[in-house]
Design a protein around this nucleic acid. Structure first.
Lengths: 199, 199, 199, 199
DNA sequence: CATGAATGAGCTTTCATTCAT
DNA sequence: CATGAATGAAAGCTCATTCAT
């Protein structure tokens, strides 16, 4: 009900909650969680700090709500992955979809990446860790050689890194994203070949 | 014999500076930079906050001094790399040495990884970024295909990730480290093969 | 009725800002700007330091706001003076009105006089200097002999001095103020006669 | 014994005490007493703070010693004045000599003028106030009209003001000093004429 | 649906001062 | 004659949070 038919969030009138989330994420990603004060968020929205507390119980809850909203696709992806057969093609599909999911919530993931120490102590810290583990387990064959397990983790990290580090590498952004995904796909493919060879 | 006859404690010798650095790094890595207060550092050393300021001008400077001390090997590695021919073997040697360097300053790198948002605003942020670029440029052949460039960056990130994410993967630590390095070596090797094929 | 039924105190109405200004000026004048801490101001008002920061951005701003409020009459006096003909009677009127203005903001001027070194580094320092120059230029005939220019400056300073130094001279305060003004008036009159004689 | 035959202070070797006084006064005058820290003084002398404590018991004592050294001429002037007959010529001589005394210790007097609030709470505060009173009593005829008493005080203040305010008035410094003194002399002369007329 | 006013806890930093060596 | 190391106290300031209106 907070979502209109075309999938965008409503702008009806009581859109303040949404605006808070947007600005908060923007600032969290830009400056970090600790260095972003509620005063700053409030000022940028031209409301009072107290108004934030009308919509959210705590600062942490603002972040949590953003996190929950924006990572649902990934949760779903993992659930989907768990129900698929552990074939190479499944894994490659997961990599593809994960890359997409990352791209559609770049600021949040940038934030998560750059504020790990902070996030760890927050409620969402555990949730995130669990999700990462879920993703890993869906890619990794537990019987596989250690190297191949590492390759899968490496694939995930390559996707993450691709979002930020490659910003300052010259070249067409789309081509870069494609290249990043190619490397990631390569890694899971090699990992799978290893497993296959052994079995 | 840290206690004199009259019962007062004495930290004997001018090792306080060093002890501050040690405790600070420990806490920074554990809780993050912002969440670690000077009070906490001081208390753990059983000195007053003011004592910290005798040895360091600011909180930031404590971190900077630790960083400078602990990353010198990496600086040297990059310098060394720049003077070597851009052969595959050179690159593989760099990966090996970099892995070692990371291992011998794990807490610092864990800190850097988990506090990127904070570090970015600090003096060491730029230094670190420069160093990463240096490392990248020493591994990457600028004429190489984009995929191969990504492979090199991915190799570095694999090493980083290896330090932390793999902690919660079962298995012998040494073997894990070896596996991580194997993947990284593989990545630069593949990257080189790509360049070679083209040329 | 500053106390509600449940015994908690209430400063009723939004007069806190004003009360802060009053107490601050009182303490600044009494002890100097630097020696007056925000803790002291807050304690005397029975609020927390943080409450001061709700109403003013910095310690300096508290002073600035007091200054702005209390010196407006002088600003207006100078503006008025600039639009009058440069006659002796105008100048005498300025002296009279300036004396009044000083009297009605004695604590502030006492403060300005006794904290010049501090004030110089503050935002209001420049404003004050400008205002003093404005006043001077309205009294002084730029073509006048140096002695006569000095006489005008001396007149202003006599008024200032009168507020403080004469406190410990015996006698009726009103008569003293009158005497001070007479001397100041005398000085500008003599200064004017000098100019007149020359022209 | 700390003074060489030609009256200048010794530079023998143990000149540190003197250097401390010089630098301290310079900084006190420039920035004010409170805003000048011992660290700053020590740094500028390239010694440690502890060294200052070898030569002086407290920060206040540094200032006190400078004050004592530099205001001795004025003390003597007052003593001299008290032993002279209360004639106009005596008074004029006092004005002249006081002007000279001021000129030869400008930084100190600038400091005293601009840090009254601070000085008031210091040991030298009372001493200074007493001296000012002494000077006043030597100029003022206690039976004189109030206006004439004010004129004398005004004369002193004119001399003080002359040192600072007139800095930003254009013209040859020597001529300005002369003009200031002329006005001061005028004031005491007029004051005397008043007394004379009455008597 | 939001604000105005305030708080309590905490922060980084600075200062004058001390004292064993 | 001076330093190296440290302290206790306090400063200005910021923050997340609360609550009556």
């Amino acid at each position: 009900m907070d979502v209109t038919m075309d999938g965008t969030r409503h702008q009806r009138r009581g859109n303040t909650r949404q605006r808070i989330q947007d600005v908060a994420l923007e600032l969290f990603a830009e400056q970090g969680y600790e260095k972003t004060s509620l005063r700053e968020i409030a000022e940028r929205l031209d409301v009072t700090k107290a108004a934030l507390y009308y919509h959210f119980k705590t600062k942490e809850e603002i972040l949590a709500s953003v996190f929950d909203d924006l990572t649902r696709p990934i949760e779903e992806l993992i659930e989907w992955g768990q129900q698929q057969p552990h074939t190479l093609e499944t894994k490659r599909e997961i990599v593809r979809r994960y890359s997409e999911a990352l791209a559609s919530a770049t600021p949040l993931f940038r934030f998560m990446q750059e504020n790990q120490a902070t996030v760890r102590e927050l409620r969402i810290g555990d949730t995130f860790k669990d999700r990462m583990k879920g993703l890993r387990d869906v890619l990794i064959d537990p019987d596989a050689e250690l190297v191949d397990q590492v390759r899968c983790v490496s694939a995930i990290f390559t996707l993450h890194a691709g979002m930020f580090v490659l910003q300052d590498l010259e070249g067409d952004p789309d081509k870069k994203r494609q290249a990043v995904m190619d490397v990631a796909l390569d890694l899971v493919t090699q990992a799978d070949r290893g497993s296959a060879g052994r079995s």
